[in-house]
Simulated assay, not measured.
Amino acid sequence: MARRSTRRTPATDPASPCPCGLGQPYGDCCGRFHHGPTGAPTAELLMRSRFSAFAVEDAAYLLSTWHPATRPARIRFEPHQRWSRLDILGTTGGGLLDAEGTVEFRAHYSQHGRQGGVLHERSRFVRRDGRWLYLGPVPSTGPMRLA
């Protein structure tokens, strides 16, 4: 289980713009997944909600949406890193009727107040017991295999 950090976390005002970039208020967008009983209905929305969870430093949500086979014991946020923008580059599968899918994205961040950091990943998601879970990056070589 994740420990609460003593440092101040970013604001999660339900009326503020959602970090995921869809242009909706946080409370109506990713906040409903972070604080509600329902999970994201697609792999892309799970990816967006996980990006927002990194932006608002919601370790509990990140751990609960991480596949048990690859889930870390805890999440540590970088004290001087702020996630600022998410670009979805493409998806395969991951829809309402799919059991797996991938989302390719670029997540932009600043470190010590300097913009320019980018995480580019093609992530793999699987549906387990009706809920989408993040499995990890798609391996660059070799066949993909369900966990």
Rank of each mutant, 00 (worst) to 15 (best):
R128F: 01
T12D: 15
F33N: 03
M144W: 14
R122W: 05
F54S: 04
G95D: 06
A99I: 09
G36C: 04
R106A: 14
G27I: 11
R76M: 12
R50D: 07
D98G: 01
L86G: 02
G136T: 08
V56N: 04
H108G: 05
H108R: 11
Q81C: 13
R7Q: 11
A60F: 03
V103S: 02
H120D: 09
P19C: 07
Q115V: 11
L146H: 14
M144L: 14
G27A: 14
A59I: 03
P19W: 04
L45I: 13
C20A: 01
S52C: 09
E57F: 02
D28S: 13
V138Q: 11
P17Y: 00
H80Y: 08
E121C: 07
V126R: 06
G31V: 07
P72E: 14
R7W: 10
M144E: 15
D28I: 13
P68Q: 02
R145L: 14
V138T: 12
Y26Q: 02
S5L: 07
F54M: 10
G21T: 03
R131M: 05
S84N: 11
D28Q: 15
V138R: 10
A69L: 05
W132D: 00
P143A: 14
C29L: 03
P79T: 07
G142R: 08
S52H: 07
R50F: 03
R131Q: 10
G116C: 07
G94E: 00
C30N: 10
F33C: 04
S52D: 08
S140F: 05
A2C: 09
R85L: 06
H35R: 15
F125E: 05
E121P: 10
A73C: 10
S5K: 09
Y109L: 12
W83I: 07
R114G: 10
A53Y: 00
T9Y: 12
A53I: 05
V138S: 06
F77Q: 03
E44I: 06
Y134Q: 06
P79Q: 08
